[in-house]
Design a protein around this nucleic acid. Structure first.
Lengths: 136, 136
DNA sequence: ATCAATTTAGTACTTTAGTATGAGCTTCAA
DNA sequence: TTGAAGCTCATACTAAAGTACTAAATTGAT
């Protein structure tokens, strides 16, 4: 945000300076009007490209966005989904329990339910299925 | 390539048209020079952004090639690497054993060794680490 | 307010995973 | 040919994961 403001401020400044410059040169007759036009055109073409580059986000993950709709379709509850993500991180039930401040029993229950909903036999399979469905 | 030629042709055409237009308006005194400058600036700013968008390539998959060199660095044997891939598919030791026509003991040995080499505590963690290292 | 779903947690159990160790067999390079 | 490395397998463990219940507290919508 701050960068955007800065860039636009500089842009406006550049525009104003160009106005002054063009006015001066036209009046004094030093330069042909075509040259000024060309300079402005090229300069702003460059600025346009520059701005675009800067504001362009890294596309990285636009094709593997997490499909939250699928999560709902599967009937995964908020907590189950949360646990699933921890499982995929490679944590044990005990570690997940500590991370989420609940007992290991609770995590076991969640994992068990989540395996049913994902139609997986093991947590490793659940990870594989989840990746295929783009939900993690 | 064809598109690039087309875009640049249109650009040059636009530039020439602008020159003619500006010359006409300056001579006839219809418009203030500042307005013309502003129009040119904005127009070429837009063109710059447009060109940049069009020429931007999709980075797709240059970062997820399997890094076999890393496999060697880790000291993973051929068989261990094979087992690792099956583990990542979500198979149990028994299932992997059947798939590779060996006993479950053998798979357990391989998995145990592979966890050591990957510095993982569990197979799920091994999957996560392997994905990070781009070896699966 | 009430009902359904969610979250929590427990017990008791079975299954799977993982460790440690020893050992036979094969392969391949020094 | 000897030795290191890799693959195989076994036994005997311990640890972790997963199942099958039951049940209480919480939350959210009708």
């Amino acid at each position: 945000m701050k960068k955007t403001v800065l860039v636009f401020s500089l842009l406006i400044l550049a525009l104003l300076l160009l106005f002054q410059f063009s006015k001066y040169t036209v009046i004094s007759g030093d330069l042909n009007i075509e040259y000024i036009m060309a300079i402005i055109a090229i300069a702003f073409l460059g600025i346009g490209i520059f701005i675009n580059k800067k504001t362009q986000k890294q596309p990285e993950t636009y094709n593997d966005q997490i499909n939250l709709q699928k999560v709902e379709e599967l009937g995964l509850s908020k907590r189950e989904y949360e646990v699933l993500k921890e499982v995929a991180l490679g944590l044990s039930n005990q570690e997940i329990a500590e991370k989420l401040f609940v007992s290991e029993s609770t995590i076991k229950t969640h994992v068990s339910n989540l395996l049913l909903k994902l139609n997986a036999k093991r947590r490793t399979q659940a990870i594989q299925i989840s990746k295929d469905l783009n939900i993690i």
